[in-house]
Design a protein around this nucleic acid. Sequence first.
RNA 1: CGGGGUGUAGCUCAGCCCGGUUAGAGUGCUACGUUCGGGACGUAGAGGCCGGUGGUUCGAAUCCACUCACCCCGACCA
Length: 489
Amino acid sequence: MSDQLTKRETDYAQWYNDLVLKADLAEHSDVRGCMVIKPHGYAIWEKMQAALDAMFKATGHVNAYFPLFIPKSYLAKEASHVEGFAKECAVVTHYRLKHDAEQGVVVDPEARLEEELIVRPTSETIIWNTYRGWIKSYRDLPLLINQWANVVRWEMRTRLFLRTAEFLWQEGHTAHATRAEAEEEARKMLDVYAKFAEEWLAMPVIKGVKTASERFAGAVDTYCIEALMQDGKALQAGTSHFLGQNFAKAFDVLFTNKDNQQEHVWATSWGVSTRLMGALIMTHSDDHGLVLPPKLAPVQVAIVPIAKNGEQLEAINAYVQPMLDALRAKGITVKYDNDDKRKPGWKFAEYEFKGYPVRIAAGPRDMENGTVEVARRDTMEKQVMQLAGIAEKVEHLLQAIQDNLYRKALTMREENMHVVDTYEEFKDRIDQGGFFLAHWDGTPETEEKVKTETKATIRCIPLNGDTKPGNCMVTGKPSAQRVIFARAY
RNA sequence: CGGGGUGUAGCUCAGCCCGGUUAGAGUGCUACGUUCGGGACGUAGAGGCCGGUGGUUCGAAUCCACUCACCCCGACCA
């Protein structure tokens, strides 16, 4: 290969960066911390969007769009929210440029905004300010809205997809008449995310609740799905928040209940972002490049003809046509690459590197034998198959690849799930990575101590975990259940 | 913001310490020919304000000062 990829074992971070760039997923823009998502990367994101959007619709949500700019004063209305986001907001102060002989253009000092605008880091404030006008009665509830949008958080250090200054995401914002209903909504959307992660990304996740220190700024409870990457670090792949009445109170969103009483509404918000691209890459890809689960691959099957001349190519075109038709009839996405500007070897390497789940080669030998050569990306295995019934075989193969990727990722996670009872053992083993199930006394002080001493944080308190009480590994004080510690992205 | 590093062809980099013809390599790109079952080979070609500004010098990619940008480590990160 001319484009050498750093081996994961050599330098995992470098491997990731190389892969994102060389597989044409994204590149750095001239604006620090921002990225250009290239067609191959964006096509994967579109597949994710389509799947998630359908799941949101199926659970009763509708899409809408709220503005990019938020009046600065809105952010200040919810105390912990402003505290959480103030340090990373981009602020618009002027609305006009003017020509300048020396510098080309300069900000027109005359055009200062009366009230400065912030570029949304998230939309709770503007949405709740809007919902105040929409919600008057229990008959207006629940209000179940999602938006697909970009947000900006001025991060100090960024990494392609994992943490960028601007990123794409969806944010659901719902309003409910009762606490129980809002809590149920937050849990329901967490389940949607977990289902999406496992069935589409083929990425096993652990559902849990965040501790107070990791909670969303403005939430009562933050639920999350946590995944384990190949290097043993945890990645938060999605969050769902029960916001209580915090935003309703901050923005005076009241409704009249059935008893003609005024009440603040109960809220949730939930989101996943282009960070999922990073999760996808770090869960399945290998030293040969990207590996994509068939359900998210923009093209599932690449077909490469092998021909010595134009005449032979025409023969192969005719030979593979029924196969193309049969595959497409099954809803399988296929690219027949008979571009004669590239050679077969080049194409093989290209499709492998970019993660196409299945590659089929057809050449003169196959035409004689009535066969094609089928290669699967996940295991790199190749086999010659009879052309008869090929569409069914490929369909099964795609499902097998999807299943295999999930199984491999699950096995990896299970092998890196450690139960520890003493802080000494924890400190000894934390360097090797993985999820550590340990007892914790529930105090922020202990959590902070562990973070300072080991760089590991509590990823979550698992929802479906072992609930046997025990004693905190650090202080020995009583603990209700084991929590998950890990070093995280 | 602190510490370290890098800016030379589309990309990866050599050259700089020790100033001196027309600034190099690999890869990529263009044309032609032979090739085509795992990133082919040959021949010919195109491609550079050596990050920017100023200085030293007969002469600067090379030395000096300033400046800008990016990368890595730390601080920060719902």
